[in-house]
């Protein structure tokens, strides 16, 4: 069975993929659907959802279109999630690979460094980083990347350590390939599947982190994100609960989708684990 077929037999994963594709489509089409941007004050504030055909989800505290905010917010959540995950991978994968492949002092040093970052409570570190750099899209993404790479390094290290004892690596050594070559072209490609699974979960975690920072007032004020919408609406949660409810659902669905996909990928990559399942 191919990977895709195995993935497709997992109902949850397919649902997750469909949701995610919808979110991506919405994010890409945002400038077409709402060319005026999410900040325009279009109607009286606190318009209740489903009461005005032009503004299906109502308006927020300043009379801005909630639907426009959600659509534009999708771009930010996905962007922050993706970019910070890529950055975290760029730190974590090389570090973990070197540690696992060379062992000895390299391993010791890299692992001390990783442990160091895992000892600092990561959300607290993210808060400090964003506060120092001042909240912009870039600083938020960077802060999330800095606090989320250690698990990647650990995972990659473990994978590389087990892979480097395999026959095909020994064969490559005998063939006279350089260490770098072996690591990059023989070992890492075989470690890619757990990394992909982890990355899909990291995107989800990054989206949650971004929204938590926004909730604490550490969001980029020029960018409409879901976390910002919840943070801005939480003071009116009693009189207009839907304002924080809808972006909350958006986050929940996206994070859920990413998790379902992650699980589906995991099952697809490791078919032997699937036996017990229907």
């Amino acid at each position: 069975m191919t990977l895709w077929k195995r993935f497709a037999t997992n109902r949850g994963a397919v649902i997750g993929l469909i949701i995610l594709l919808c979110v991506i489509a919405i994010a890409l089409l945002a400038p077409v659907i709402y060319p005026g941007g999410p900040w325009k004050m279009v109607q009286r504030p606190f318009l209740v959802p489903f009461t005005n055909g032009d503004l299906p989800l109502g308006t927020d505290t300043l009379g801005r279109d909630v639907a426009a905010g959600l659509v534009h917010g999708a771009r930010v959540s996905l962007l922050v999630g993706l970019v910070s995950t890529v950055m975290a991978l760029l730190i974590g994968v090389p570090l973990g690979a070197l540690a696992g492949f060379y062992g000895g002092y390299v391993d010791e040093g890299a692992m001390r460094f990783t442990e160091f970052f895992q000892t600092i409570p990561n959300f607290a570190l993210a808060i400090v980083l964003v506060a120092i750099l001042e909240p912009t899209l870039g600083s938020i993404t960077l802060a999330i990347a800095i606090v989320s790479w250690p698990p990647v390094a650990r995972l990659v290290r473990a994978e590389v350590m087990s892979l480097k004892r395999r026959e095909f690596v020994e064969a490559a050594h005998l063939a006279g390939l350089s260490n770098t070559r072996i690591l990059v072209s023989e070992v890492l490609p075989n470690a890619i599947s757990p990394i992909i699974v982890m990355a899909s979960l990291m995107v989800a975690t990054a989206i949650l982190l971004e929204s938590s920072l926004s909730f604490l007032g550490l969001g980029d004020p020029n960018i409409m994100s879901w976390g910002y919408m919840i943070g801005a609406a939480r003071t009116v949660i009693r009189s207009a609960w839907w304002l924080s409810f809808m972006p909350g659902v958006a986050i929940l669905l996206t994070v859920l989708a990413l998790n379902l996909i992650g699980e589906g990928l995991n099952d697809a990559f490791n078919p032997h684990l699937k036996k017990g399942r229907t």
Partner: peptide, 21 residues
């Protein structure tokens, strides 16, 4: 919110403006 409302007002008369945080 106040800063956001002012930003919107200023943008509407053609001023290029963003919010610092």
């Amino acid at each position: 919110r106040w800063a956001e409302a002012v930003r919107q007002n200023l943008q509407e008369v053609g001023i290029t403006v963003d919010i610092d945080s």
